[in-house]
């Protein structure tokens, strides 16, 4: 009897605490407001202000920042002309991010498959090796790539030694260099979610597929890929989003000439002293990424229900 009485009292207590449960999430809400919503609002506000002469902003409303994304003011005629340099940079960012995502998937999928199908002990070792690059600063890793692909770098020396080429390949400070660097840097971000998905994959389904007359390719396309799709989506997002906003890699390997959106934004805040344009560009990047994600996830889910 005593037990039943106790649990009734406890139940009442639980009910009361459920009513005030939202209080528990208050700290999280505060952090979210302070860390995410607040700064974002500041960026939005800055994008609608006038640029100060020496950076920063002055408190007058202006759409120059937003207009500056696509048009530049010609200082001689005072008319607006299309900012084709910006368009080139946008296009390069999207193109390189897309290529990086594709390549990390093509390279990362067999890697993740290999790791997920090892015995548990070996698997832990391989995963450990995959995460090792994270221990080193991004800048240092990027300079390491620089060392490999620059004109007098290891790659060119090796190729010339073997006699494949007679003159050093011009790789550094090209789109290719940026692409190679980003692929290297973001590869683990593709491998890890793919590994998690493949690890959950029931390998017996492969036999079921072969048993039902599917070829290896059909098993991969009709069984494996649809089932590990959540991992593919997660990996693609983890690679595509930071690729689009990449800053260090294009800076070091693109040599300041092969700029991406991240570098353009930096330019506006520092050398360009045009904070509203920088803020507007940042917002544009955010919107583009959000839209891309929505499309991607929807397309992926739509295909799933279609089968």
């Amino acid at each position: 009897m005593a037990d039943i009485h106790m649990s009734a009292a406890e139940a009442a207590q639980i009910k009361t605490s459920a009513r005030h449960g939202w209080l528990l999430s208050l700290p999280a809400l505060v952090v979210l407001a302070a860390a995410a919503v607040g700064p974002l609002l500041i960026v939005v506000v800055y994008s609608f202000l006038e640029a100060g002469k020496h950076g920063n902003v002055v408190g007058n409303f202006s759409t120059d920042g937003w207009r500056g994304i696509l048009w530049t003011k010609d200082i001689f005629t005072d008319s607006y002309v299309l900012a084709d340099a910006h368009l080139t940079i946008f296009w390069r960012s999207i193109k390189l991010s897309f290529l990086t995502t594709m390549t990390t998937f093509v390279v990362g999928f067999p890697t993740a498959w290999f790791i997920a199908t090892r015995p548990p002990k070996a698997r832990a070792l391989w995963l450990f090796l995959i995460t090792i690059p994270f221990w080193t600063n991004l800048l240092i890793r990027t300079y390491a790539i620089n060392e490999v692909i620059r004109a007098e770098g290891l790659l060119n020396l090796a190729l010339m030694k073997v006699g494949v080429i007679s003159e050093p390949l011009k790789l550094i400070y090209t789109d290719i260099a940026v692409f190679v660097g980003m692929t290297y840097v973001y590869l683990p971000l593709m491998v890890l979610p793919l590994f998690a998905a493949i690890d959950r994959f029931d390998l017996r389904l492969l036999e079921a597929g072969y048993d039902l007359y599917a070829s290896r390719w059909q098993v991969l396309r009709r069984i494996v890929l649809p089932i590990v799709k959540p991992g593919i989506i997660a990996g693609s997002i983890l690679v595509f989003v930071p690729s689009l906003g990449a800053y260090v890699t294009p800076r070091v390997l693109g040599g300041g000439k092969q700029m991406m959106i991240g570098n353009l934004i930096e330019l506006q805040f520092l050398a360009g002293k045009n904070w509203p344009l920088g803020a507007a560009l940042s917002m544009t990047l955010l919107v583009v990424v959000t839209i891309a994600l929505l499309f991607y996830v929807r397309a992926a889910n739509g295909e799933k229900s279609h089968g």
Partner: peptide, 25 residues
Amino acid sequence: LPPNKRPVNTVFQSYALFPHLTVAQ
């Protein structure tokens, strides 16, 4: 002969049904 070339089918102990497909699929 590989399994996909044999007119032999298997009912697996674990069933090994394809989780992403419907019953009919």
